[in-house]
């Protein structure tokens, strides 16, 4: 084993189809929960703004969920969602994403300056139109910042699922460890970091595109 190189390129070459499959699996299991989490966080966040009293308990519950060890949650879910299924991994990840995104939605809406909201009211926006055309668009930068955190952590959390038989690129860690063979482990780490990095870059791009006006935040501080 002493002569074993750190990365065996021929192994990569031989396993390209498998690697691609794992990469796609990892991306799907990471990103679908973020999307689902966002969709769920929007109404919850709105409710939190509308009924202030609901907000603290909601965040409390979210934080408790966030503190649960992911492996424990996966194991608890196996009888319901099955061993080695995508669902077993994606359900907890959805909750983790929500734990980040519900506060982001609430903070984003709270960041709408009061005079802006007041002037929208005074101009004759109906409440729904005000929400859709004024408040949510102004909340976008804060929500997107939360989305970046949720996405990156989701991509890397997927690999824990390998311990219950479905962990995307995480499979490579177990494989490499069991066979005392470093190449899969290194390839796994590199691919996860790449995946997270690309997802993050896409979100930054979306941010530039969606909120050209958000220069206001940084420039005003400068």
């Amino acid at each position: 084993m002493g002569e074993e190189p750190l990365v065996r390129w021929d192994w990569i070459g031989r396993n390209l189809p498998v690697l691609r499959e794992l990469l796609v699996d990892n991306a799907v299991m990471a990103l679908v929960p973020v999307l689902a989490g966002l969709l769920l966080a929007l109404p919850l966040g709105l409710a939190g703004v509308r009924w202030r009293r609901l907000y603290q308990p909601t965040v409390g519950v979210m934080n408790v969920v966030y503190s649960l060890p992911s492996l424990a949650v996966f194991i608890v879910l196996i009888p319901i969602t099955g061993l080695a299924t995508r669902l077993t991994v994606m359900v907890p990840l959805t909750f983790y994403a929500m734990a980040v995104l519900v506060p982001a939605v609430v903070d984003g809406l709270a960041a709408v300056p009061d005079h802006v909201r007041q002037s929208a009211v005074a101009m004759g926006f109906t409440p729904l139109r005000r929400l859709l055309q004024v408040e949510l668009p102004i909340a976008v930068p804060v929500v997107l910042a939360g989305l970046r955190v949720a996405t990156v952590s989701s991509v890397s959390l997927v690999s824990v699922g390998a311990l219950v038989g479905r962990g995307g690129l995480g499979y490579l860690f177990i494989d490499g460890w069991q066979r005392q063979f470093p190449t899969p482990i290194i390839v796994g780490i590199v691919l996860i970091v790449l995946l997270a990095g690309i997802a993050d870059l896409l979100l930054v791009g979306a941010q530039r595109l969606l909120t050209p006006w958000a220069g206001s935040r940084t420039r005003r501080r400068a």
């Binding site: 300056p113 005079h115 802006v116 007041q118 002037s119 929208a120 009211v121 005074a122 101009m123 004759g124 926006f125 109906t126 004024v134 668009p137 102004i138 976008v140 909120t211 006006w213 206001s216």
Partner: peptide, 22 residues
């Protein structure tokens, strides 16, 4: 009805209340 009433009344406030995203 308030929205109808308000669309017929201009309103200007101290911080202008402009929409930052438009």
């Amino acid at each position: 009805d308030p929205p109808t009433l308000r669309r017929g009344i201009g309103y200007v406030i101290q911080q202008a209340g402009l929409f930052p995203h438009r």
